[in-house]
Design a protein around this nucleic acid. Structure first.
Lengths: 154, 154
DNA sequence: TCAACTTGACAATATCAATGTCATATTTAC
DNA sequence: GTAAATATGACATTGATATTGTCAAGTTGA
């Protein structure tokens, strides 16, 4: 690329690899859900509940960094499918806590175990140390990019 | 996460970091375009032309791995804005080759230089070797995930 | 108490992208 | 050389993901 200084090309490439990586990951997740009654977005709700216990809709929205209105939609689907159930919220009479049903817990644990098995298979090709390095770099780059995006000037 | 074997957790985390990383990167790119007449998708077309020279619409679609109909839309915008121009295609009378105009070249080179400067700034915080390792791991994981997604069974 | 904020529900909108269709042009097989 | 298959541009429809706006009811804090 003439006239563009490519000193930081490996980092540039790493950042631009994020899109195809995400698409491949999502395709893989979707592939793992075909035999279940789950959709990708319902899976995201169940994963949150498995990791963090009972949560209200706004809590999930904050963790997923998407708007509460959309989370409401996702959550309502999990309720309708019987994967979650509403439980009284001691802190709020109208805003229920969302909890996994036995069925929901079994489904998300099964899915995540299958996904983790895939990860184990892939991880076998790398040194643990290299994966750790990659994770550390990627997370730090992400943090810095977020900061850059918010700055008024470069 | 009880009852889920998390042996490959670092790799799992690396894969799931791809979405926020991509979102941060896109926000950053968008931020860099505010003073130009470019949109993110027009930028993608210009970057292709800068990297690969004159291309026809279907060529760009193949490289970007999106459908030609959508690329056509993106390309038409770059034509309307004067960043690209149609040149005769020796291989096809109806399908023109797309080329950067002087204006288009100046704009994409300026943008990419600014982006590369941001990358250089961020890269300063890491060992070159670690960035290379991260890139290598991420690209290999992506390849493997794509293969997994296409397999009929895990 | 009263103003500000939170939440669920619902509607409208935006963006990115795939898919479908058609006319025209091009390439390939015969 | 012609017929069939394929490629291309143009345009329309649809789908998925997510944001934004609005309102009524509930909650919080001064």
């Amino acid at each position: 690329m003439h006239n563009v200084d490519m000193n930081a090309k490996p980092l540039y490439d790493l950042v631009w690899a994020s899109r195809p990586l995400m698409q491949a990951a999502e395709a893989c997740v979707e592939r793992g859900l075909v035999d279940t009654a789950l959709t990708v977005r319902m899976r995201a709700v169940l994963e949150m509940l498995l990791a963090h216990g009972e949560l209200a809709v706004p809590d999930i929205a904050e963790k997923l960094e998407i708007k509460r209105q959309y989370v409401q939609l996702m959550v309502n689907e999990t309720l309708a499918s019987g994967f979650t159930t509403q439980r009284p919220n001691p802190r709020h009479k109208r805003s229920f806590l969302l909890a996994l049903t036995d069925q929901g817990r079994a489904v998300i644990e099964g899915i995540m175990q299958k996904e983790m098995d895939v990860m184990k298979d892939i991880a076998a090709d790398f040194k643990d140390e290299d994966v750790s390095t990659a994770l550390r770099v990627v997370q730090a780059v992400m943090t810095k990019l977020k900061a850059k995006a918010e700055e008024q000037t470069w």
